[in-house]
Amino acid sequence: MIAGIRSVLAECGGLAVDAETLAINDDLYAAGLTSHGCVGLMLGLEEEFDVEFPEKLLNRRTFESIAAIRDAVRGLVDGGEA
C-alpha cells in the first residue's frame, strides 16, 4: 500500500520533492503539498484504492503523512470507518 500511496503522491500531489525520498511520517505539507494539491491527491487515492473518503476525513490531518494516508485508506478498505 505504501508504494501505491507514493506513486499517487508523485503523480497527483504536486510536491516539491521526490515522493520516493519521503519517510512515512514526514510532513507532506512541509514537503510542498498545497490545499489544491491535496484535492488531487485525495481523488488519486480514491481511484488507486477504489475507496471514497467520507466528509469527516476530508481535512488536512488525513493527508498529513504517508502513514496517516495509509491508516485512513486501510480503514476504508477494511470496509469500516477509518
Binding site: 490545499s35 489544491h36 491535496c38 484535492v39 485525495m42 481523488l43 473518503f53 466528509e55 476530508l58 481535512n59 488536512r60
Partner: peptide
C-alpha cells in the same frame, strides 16, 4: 462538491 469540502476545511484549519 467533495473537493470543495476538502478545500473549505483546509482553509479554516489554516
Amino acid at each position: 462538491g467533495r473537493a470543495g469540502a476538502m478545500l473549505s476545511s483546509s482553509q479554516r484549519e489554516q
